[in-house]
Design a protein around this nucleic acid. Structure first.
Lengths: 192, 192
DNA sequence: TCTACAAACTAACATTTGTTAGTTTGCGTT
DNA sequence: AACGCAAACTAACAAATGTTAGTTTGTAGA
């Protein structure tokens, strides 16, 4: 996927393997084998294993950050902003599920400034999320339930969407968005 | 936590480290250091690193299996059964968040028969879940939205609850159960 | 045809890994 | 005092790891 130069191929292969086994369980020789070359040759394109991880994780984290800025600075209603966030997660997940898996599971292997930068973005994202919910609550758009519970409930589902999309692809992207919004926003109980 | 014999201590320490860094990134020397002993000494109590993982993951998976059997064989309404499942997840998570983290993130490092056994249990659990939802739908208790979407939405939140409980413990266990049920079952939009 | 260079290779390195063998230590029971 | 035993230790192992140095190969431009 993505650009077909050698470096991008490595990142793509690495993300796939990281998703399957986790960062630490994947060796440079594993990645090389999948690329049909020797481990040493990888270093013509990348500078370290760590840098592969950074490239994958930071890039996608920045996409979420940009998305949040765009959405939360629009003047739309809180509910409509939530719908756009749902779209954002679904789109990025469908585009490359393995990268989302790395974002979820392997960020912990970032070090120093990269880790710091990542955590800052994650924090900012969640703050943006909460701000939207808060506004929706004072509006009366959103039910007055514990803010953190609502946010983490929504985020859990959106963040781990890659897990079950990998197993069942029974719905088209658009149909998926519709169903997700209904379940996440309207709830489950009939005529609640 | 748990029994204080040496083996249980090792499992507890290991689960904590696995949660922080992932199975592959934790060495026997790491575990030993945390136990204030040498790596070789661990083998007086356990037979391998792999077995530590198996003990942790299979045990908790069995607890979920038993819980599902108990709940789904009761004659309660679908909604009430879902409420009991929410309680089950919250209780097991509060009891030992690290073990739940291992269940979620490290099962992939199980091998052969252990992996097979785990996957069988996971499958059975999800089948039980779907059966409840299905009954609730034909009952009219549960809104007629895509079954898989509902299930994975609920399960995502319940399974990754340990993530945010680790960061914010602002609610008591009982209060948590109430809020979770409201959000997960009744939804978010006001007067939907 | 010659040159330059990207991109592959082989060989080796210092560490870290899980694990084993054999030994020591301390304590409760005879 | 002697014994048995659980639980710690030291030392070592082969294998796997990330990475480097130096070399070869193929191809595009002069």
């Amino acid at each position: 996927m993505e650009k077909s130069d050698r470096k991008s191929e490595i990142l793509s292969v690495a993300a796939r393997l990281f998703r399957e086994r986790g960062y630490s369980a994947v060796s440079m020789r594993d990645i090389a084998q999948e690329m049909e070359m020797k481990a040493a040759s990888l270093y013509n394109h990348i500078t370290s294993k760590q840098q592969i991880l950074v490239s994958i994780v930071i890039r996608i984290a920045e996409e979420f950050t940009v998305g949040m800025e765009r959405i939360s600075s629009s003047g739309d209603s809180a509910i409509h902003q939530l719908e756009q966030l749902i779209d954002l997660h679904i789109e990025l997940t469908l585009h490359d599920p393995s990268v989302i898996a790395c974002l979820n599971n392997d960020w912990m292997h970032l070090t120093d400034s990269d880790l710091k930068y990542f955590l800052k973005m994650r924090d900012k994202y969640e703050e943006g999320f909460k701000a939207i919910l808060k506004r929706g609550m004072s509006n009366g758009e959103i039910a007055n339930v514990n803010l953190e519970v609502i946010m983490f409930s929504l985020l859990s589902t959106l963040r781990t969407f890659y897990l079950w999309y990998g197993r069942k692809k029974l719905l088209s992207g658009d149909e998926l968005k519709i169903q997700m919004k209904r379940v996440l926003l309207n709830g489950i109980i009939t005529s609640a």
